[in-house]
Simulated assay, not measured.
Amino acid sequence: GGWIDRHCRAEDLGATMTMDPTTADVIDAIAGPVGLVPGGVDVVFECAGVRETVEQSMRLARAGGTVVIVGVTPQGVKAEFEPFDLLFRELKVLGSFLNPYTHRRAAELIASGTIEIDRLISRQVSLEEAPAVIANPPAPGEVKVLVVPRRG
C-alpha cells in the first residue's frame, strides 16, 4: 500500500525509524518509556498540516522542547492542546512559513548533490494533467509529483 512504499523510501533515504500511525501509538512509540526517545524529542517539526499531527507534535516534545509548525492546515482547522501541559512542560511553539530566503539555499543543495531529490519523485505528469493531480488526493505510494511541461 501507499504507507509501505513511503516507509521503504524513507528508510532507504536514511530515516532512523518509521511507523504506520494507523497500527501504532505514535506518542508511545516515540516518547513513551520504551520508545525511540523516552521522554520526548528536543525539536518536533510538524510538516503534514493535519489536525492530528499538530496535536501529536505537542506530546512528542520533551519538557523544555520546541515544536515548529511548518505544515499548512486549511484555514478554519482547529487543534486541541492543554495550556497547562504547555506551561508545565515549558514548551516553545513556533510557526514557520516558508520564505523566499530558503529557495536559493535549497536550489544550491540540490544542484550540489547534497540533497538527492530524484528518489523522492514518484511520478511525472504533463502540465495538462497537473490540475487533476492537484485536485485529487495522492495515489497510494505517491511522494512527490513532478510536472514536466511539453516543449514545442
Rank of each mutant, 00 (worst) to 15 (best):
A107N: 09
V77Y: 08
V50F: 06
P140K: 03
R59S: 15
G39D: 14
T114F: 02
P100M: 09
V54E: 07
K144V: 06
P138W: 09
G113T: 03
F97H: 13
G64I: 15
K92L: 10
S57P: 05
G64C: 09
A135K: 04
G76T: 13
S57A: 09
T114Q: 15
Q56T: 05
F84G: 04
V72L: 13
Q124D: 14
V143Y: 01
G49T: 05
E90Q: 12
S57Y: 06
E142W: 08
A61R: 04
R123M: 12
I69L: 11
I110D: 07
A61K: 01
L94K: 06
L36M: 06
A79D: 04
P131G: 12
E108T: 03
E46T: 04
G65L: 14
E108M: 02
V67L: 07
Q56M: 06
V133H: 06
L109S: 12
A79P: 13
E116P: 04
V41D: 01
P137Q: 08
T73V: 15
R59K: 11
E90P: 00
V50R: 05
N136D: 13
G35R: 05
L120W: 02
R62Q: 15
F88S: 15
E52H: 01
A61V: 11
F81V: 09
P83T: 11
Q124T: 15
E108Q: 14
E82M: 08
V50Q: 01
D85I: 04
I110T: 05
R51C: 10
I134M: 11
E128Q: 15
V72D: 07
P38V: 03
A139G: 04
G39Q: 14
D118S: 03
P100F: 05
A63E: 08
G71H: 04
C47P: 03
E52Y: 00
H103C: 08
D118T: 09
G40K: 03
E46S: 05
P137I: 10
L86N: 08
L120K: 06
T114K: 11
E128Y: 06
E46N: 09
G95Y: 00
E46W: 09
G65V: 04
A106L: 05
A130L: 12
L120S: 06
L109D: 09
T53F: 03
